[in-house]
């Protein structure tokens, strides 16, 4: 996973709520067996509309998506995170996220930032008025800075540390292989196996 410390980039305002993972990447794109090539599938149904915000020239190259509440609800598809990253996003800011999406994002180094609805609205308005204006998302300081707007966000210490170090969860867990083996010895003996 790519480490995330601080990121500065331009923002895209996505004024929609309940942006479910079927919209982020429709199911037809999920048939791939590789981890690459999902950028073309990002919002592919919505991108057919020339007026869709991602199609506007002023938002090309932007790397921070600012969306409405309940972003990433629905399906557990991690492809949604891959698609956002491969398109060029490093951060998604929203008032509320789907739990599985948020979890998937932190596993991959895409930073989900929860901010109150009114702050998100101000960030969206700013991105609409000044598409070229930059936003800084500072994970170390747990802070979003956009002009005179400074908003702090919450993230637990462990996830923040893992993101800042770019650490692989599996490697961390395997350091506790002895604990796992000890747990397996005390499991109830009638629990089912698939064999």
């Amino acid at each position: 996973m790519e480490a995330f410390t601080s990121h500065t980039g331009r923002a895209v305002p996505l004024r929609r709520s309940n942006v479910d993972t079927d919209q982020i990447i429709p199911a037809v794109w999920l048939k791939q067996v590789s981890r690459t090539g999902f950028d073309k599938g990002l919002f592919s149904a919505w991108r057919e509309d020339p007026d869709f915000v991602l199609n506007k020239p002023e938002y090309q190259g932007a790397s921070i998506l600012v969306a409405g509440p309940d972003f990433g609800t629905g399906s557990s598809r991690e492809h949604a995170v891959w698609a956002l990253q491969q398109y060029g996003f490093r951060v998604v800011i929203a008032p509320r996220f789907g739990d599985i999406f948020r979890n998937n994002a932190t596993k991959m180094g895409l930073l989900p930032v929860v901010l109150p609805g009114d702050v998100v609205d101000r960030l969206q308005t700013r991105a609409e008025r000044e598409p070229a204006a930059e936003v800084t998302v500072d994970l170390g300081a747990r802070e979003v800075r956009a002009g005179d707007l400074v908003a702090s966000f919450e993230i637990d210490d462990y996830t923040r540390w893992r993101l800042m170090e770019g650490l692989d969860d599996i490697g961390l867990t395997l350091r506790h292989a002895d604990d796992i083996a000890a747990y397996e010895r005390r499991r109830l003996d009638w629990l089912p196996t698939t064999v």
Binding site: S76, I100, N103, K107, D169
Partner: peptide, 8 residues
């Protein structure tokens, strides 16, 4: 869970 967690 997502695919990273499936692998985990």
């Amino acid at each position: 869970i997502g695919t990273s967690e499936v692998e985990h």
